[in-house]
Amino acid sequence: MKQMKILAISHACVVDEYRSKFEMMTNDQNIDLKLMVPERSIEGFPVINPVPVISKSYSIVKEQTFFSKKIYMHFYPFLPFSFFRDNFDLIYIEEEPWSLAATEIIFLNQLNKNKVPVVFFTWQNLINPWKSSSLKKIFYRHIEQITLSKFNAAIAGSVEAAHVLRKKRFKGLIRVIPQFGIDPNRFQRLPVQNMADKLILKKPVIGFIGRLIPEKGIFILLEAFRKIKQECSLLVIGNGASAVDFKRYISKHGLGNKIHWIPSV
């Protein structure tokens, strides 16, 4: 039986835990999978260094990206060489449909004589995730309308995300399969007695884990935390493109003795 050649593209899969699903897929001898990830960091995501050697049927490729400071604006300038050379049977991209990376895939597939099915993954559960008066909204919405008309299928991270796709008139197949979880056998809760004391945190402790970007609500949290009158602490774990603004906010409002920041764990 001929192997199915799959190209998967994902900026998030620079994190090894997120790649486990692809490793499981390639246990099937009938699948030949190439995973493409950014060569440079995308909005706080790390880079793979060195690239692990998996097997003949599963390879990870680091590709150069342009506009790598923004998740939705980055794309792969040298992707066309691999796209037209390797004759893939299926393309799977873990980028939102309004991203330039998704647009690039759709554009290349339209140029391809033998068009292949293209599947994308989305978490987006808002109809309008952009500011209503911004030019960015017009740009992203136009791109999204084009790509949604060309994608063959979608994997939604939640039922809400699937409903949003239908409201946006996506006519392809949709399956709800939450992604980017963790292996509970690998990540287990450990005893944390006296952790607040070790970090010199005043109880109660409010926690935030995630990338430091506006979309994750970190600055809304800071505004709310600043208004709390009672004694408490904020523990922030994460890094990202807004780390400088995050530190500037803490300094400006004199919150340094109430906020403990751990960039990564």
Rank of each mutant, 00 (worst) to 15 (best):
K168H: 06
R175G: 13
I138E: 11
N185F: 08
F139L: 15
N194R: 15
H142A: 05
L173Q: 15
K150C: 08
V159E: 14
A161N: 00
K167M: 14
V159F: 12
V164E: 08
D183S: 12
N152M: 10
A156M: 09
G157C: 07
N152Y: 10
A153P: 05
S149F: 04
L165K: 02
Q193Y: 12
R186H: 05
R169M: 12
G172L: 08
I177M: 04
P184W: 11
A156L: 08
H142S: 07
R169W: 11
V159D: 13
N185C: 06
I174T: 08
F139A: 14
R141K: 14
S149G: 10
A196P: 01
A154R: 03
H142D: 05
L190G: 09
L148F: 02
P178E: 05
V192W: 09
R141G: 07
R166D: 02
P178Y: 07
R169P: 03
V159Q: 11
V192F: 09
R175Y: 15
I177W: 08
P191D: 10
A196Q: 07
A161G: 00
R175P: 07
L190N: 14
F170D: 04
A162G: 04
I182D: 01
N185P: 01
K150S: 04
N194P: 14
K171A: 13
I182A: 04
L165E: 00
E144A: 06
K137S: 15
Y140R: 07
R189Q: 04
T147N: 00
I146H: 00
Q188L: 11
A162E: 06
G181M: 10
K168I: 03
T147V: 00
F170Y: 11
A162T: 06
A154S: 14
K150V: 03
R186F: 10
V192R: 08
D183N: 13
P178A: 05
